[in-house]
Amino acid sequence: MDTKRENTESTSAQADASGTLEGDVTINGSGRMPNDIECANLKINGAGQCDGNVRARRIIVNGGGTFGKKVRAEEMSVNGDASVAEGAGIGALKVKGRMSVGGGLAVHEADVRGDIKVGGDIEADSLTGEGAFNVDGLMNVGTLDIRVWGTSRASEIGGETIRVAGARGLGEALRSLFGEKRLVADSLEGDEVSLEYTTAKVVRGDRVTIGTGCNVELVEYTGTYDRVADSLVGEARKAEA
């Protein structure tokens, strides 16, 4: 095993008996940590690889971070690129750049500017941001408020408030290089569902708004339903509440 650690500082990182996370781990340049890590602060400036499970209060990745197993943290910021192989549980997640998670991703709050890929399900109380979102499993999100560019995919999306818009404003021309802005999903269900540039088989909710660029086969609503002219809806049905 490559245990190149000359650029790695580790100052007594460990969890004491009560489970309090202490100590800092910093990787400057490039470094690889072969074992599980429990610490207060894990910082990667450059390229870092952690082969074991990581549990930390705070994780900051500036550059590239590769996590071979699971990651748990109260806070995680990614400026650059991070990948987690076996699932992540994060209190507050901020991504500027790209993040991919092999298993499921459970977060309290996530703000994403860029590209996120999840192999399992996403569970989040709140997920905001703009970029391309690709989720192989289900998205269960209390409040989803995203602007999509490129192609985003999820099989099922459910939550309280679901707002999907197309990216606009400065930089949209640049972003169009990533391809058409569009979210593709089998189903979206929520109390309030407001969509743009979304292709879906079915949208169900209390208050449903189908905006510009949408193509939805079936809408079922219990409260209100609005649709702009610049959209395609196969059938809209009012269901009894």
Binding site: D125, G142, G205, A241
Partner: peptide, 20 residues
């Protein structure tokens, strides 16, 4: 799911929140 929501009066949002 549809009948469940109709019979209990809960919303999609509640159902998803309770699952989370």
């Amino acid at each position: 799911k549809k009948d469940l929501l109709k019979d209990t009066g809960i919303s999609y949002g509640q159902l998803y929140r309770w699952k989370r």
